[in-house]
């Protein structure tokens, strides 16, 4: 994996190579080069399978970490491409033209984290949260407790002493 990283470093500005296992490694790339790196990996190096695209919210660093995980069926190795984007203005290039399932992942990230992928088909459509009014819910600063307190009316918990309750219900006339 280190060999592949060295070869790719000649063309792309990569950083922070981390070998997790013999078949799994992560490396960082600039957002502007990410899509061309993914295309390069897919077409030249055999990383043909987009396993997933996900996002980690680093609230304290004001950054989103997008993780593109690619798998190579020939060498049976995985390469995670990490892209850090600004959390306040999250925009990223779309990869819907590389993999058909890409637009579904991007649609979900748009809904859950508020990341915009210009040009991705249907990215603005709600996917899971139809009619959602609040902020993107998977962000770390979204307070689920405060949201539910504001949105739903409070239903107090009524607890009855079983013996007393039965007495009142069944034998109220006595």
């Amino acid at each position: 994996m280190k060999k592949l990283y060295d070869i790719l470093s000649l063309q792309f500005e990569l950083a922070d190579f981390e070998s997790k296992r013999s078949d799994l490694a992560f490396c960082k790339v600039k957002a502007s080069q990410a899509i061309s790196l993914l295309t390069h990996l897919r077409d030249i190096h055999g990383y043909t399978h987009l396993v997933m695209l996900t996002c980690v919210d680093w609230l304290e660093d004001k950054q989103f970490q997008l993780t593109y995980l690619l798998h190579n069926y020939a060498t049976k190795t995985d390469l995670g491409i990490l892209v850090f984007i600004d959390r306040d203005h999250p925009v990223m290039d779309s990869l819907h033209h590389l993999w058909k399932q890409g637009r579904v992942y991007q649609r979900e990230l748009h809904e859950m984290f508020g990341i915009d992928f210009p040009g991705s088909p249907g990215v603005e459509e709600p996917m899971i949260l139809e009619g959602w009014q609040g902020p993107p819910p998977m962000r770390r600063d979204f307070d689920t407790k405060a949201y539910s307190d504001e949105t739903y009316s409070h239903r107090p918990r009524v607890q009855n002493e079983p013996e007393q309750h039965m007495k009142e219900q069944l034998y109220s006339e006595d």
Binding site: F26, V51, M52, T54, V56, D57
Partner: peptide, 30 residues
């Protein structure tokens, strides 16, 4: 740290991507 683990389920590749920030709670599980 972060890691990705996969297994063959009846429907195919099932995977967990777990990110830890060193605390007692997972930072992100995908």
């Amino acid at each position: 740290g972060q890691t990705y683990l996969r297994a063959e389920s009846t429907r195919g590749e099932y995977g967990y991507f777990m990110v830890s920030d060193g605390s007692a709670f997972p930072r992100k599980v995908t």
